[in-house]
Nucleic acid binder design. Structure first.
Lengths: 164, 164
DNA sequence: CCCTTGACTGTTATGTTATTACGTTAGATA
DNA sequence: TATCTAACGTAATAACATAACAGTCAAGGG
């Protein structure tokens, strides 16, 4: 099998600034720094997400893990995925019931996700301004916000240009 | 059975400006204006959502519908709920796999949702500024945004004051 | 009036996503 | 080495969602 981490991180327009290998090493560095145990299953799960170039369902991940000799049951995938999300190495895309590797695991950050309804690509974008506006709205409502899910559906650059 | 639509729309702090009856009549007025068929199942589903004072799962709704002589199978609930969401009478809360009545069915609006992780209440808030910021971010990414899901998790006013 | 049409409702069956519970393993530590 | 705990594996099941098809009924044309 060719090593998927060799390819660039490139969806949906194949011009992203981050290579897959770079994302992976950033993640490993942060895990070491924070004494987080990036175990074999977790690491492999992260690699699978990175190589997927987009969001994968838990059962997609599980299938790959099982094929490589890891556990065959749902909790194996869910545990690894939830751990990755909890520690900032991945994100959960609720609209798709799926998970995607974090594109910037080096730093804590607020992110929004753009989901293309043509090619199903998922793009992570910085969302500092959006989060600030949401924080304001929360304060106005007397709500103590902890975290947020911000997902937009539409067409990515490639599909919007090509399709119509 | 007491009529749940008589009570005020009041979660999570029991001080909302909209009464349940008012929401319902706004919805009926809009349905009439737009020639949308708010059939018995759909109307009853909407009433159930309004009376719930928060988000309900599709199967919760189904249970109530079934008890009242409507269909007993999931598609009955999902069809009504999806129709309500599609036409702006309700919202889907993805983080909870649940649905909630729209608090302002009179007008089209961008909304954000504040989900309390203590009491599970869901508050709908106007999100014009948030949506504007998100639209900006989308444009910067070359993404043609159509609609967005904005959900925040934290503590509502009541729980934040009371709990800790 | 009768028929067609299309929207709506109901049911069967199945597919998809996620969790609970419990036993085992393996690394860290006293 | 004895013990502790986080992590892992598996079985079973719960929770969420949809496809496909049949029956109902009201509106409109002949």
């Amino acid at each position: 099998m060719s090593d998927p981490t060799e390819s660039g991180f490139c969806c949906p327009d194949h011009s992203g600034p981050q290579s897959a290998t770079r994302i992976l090493s950033q993640a490993q560095a942060r895990a070491a720094r924070m004494r987080l145990r990036l175990t074999p299953v977790r690491l492999r799960t992260l690699e699978i997400l990175i190589a997927a170039h987009g969001a994968l369902g838990a059962y997609d991940v599980l299938e790959k893990l099982a094929a490589e000799g890891y556990g065959t049951q749902p909790p194996v995938a869910y545990r690894a995925l939830n751990w990755l999300v909890e520690h900032g190495f991945a994100h959960r895309i609720r609209r798709l019931n799926a998970f995607t590797a974090c594109a910037h695991p080096a730093d804590d950050h607020a992110a929004a996700f753009f989901i293309c309804d043509r090619c199903d690509s998922v793009t992570e974008a910085p969302a500092v301004a959006v989060t600030a506006a949401l924080t304001d709205a929360a304060q106005a409502a007397g709500f103590a916000m902890e975290r947020a899910t911000i997902e937009a559906v539409g067409q990515c650059r490639a599909c919007d240009g090509a399709g119509a």
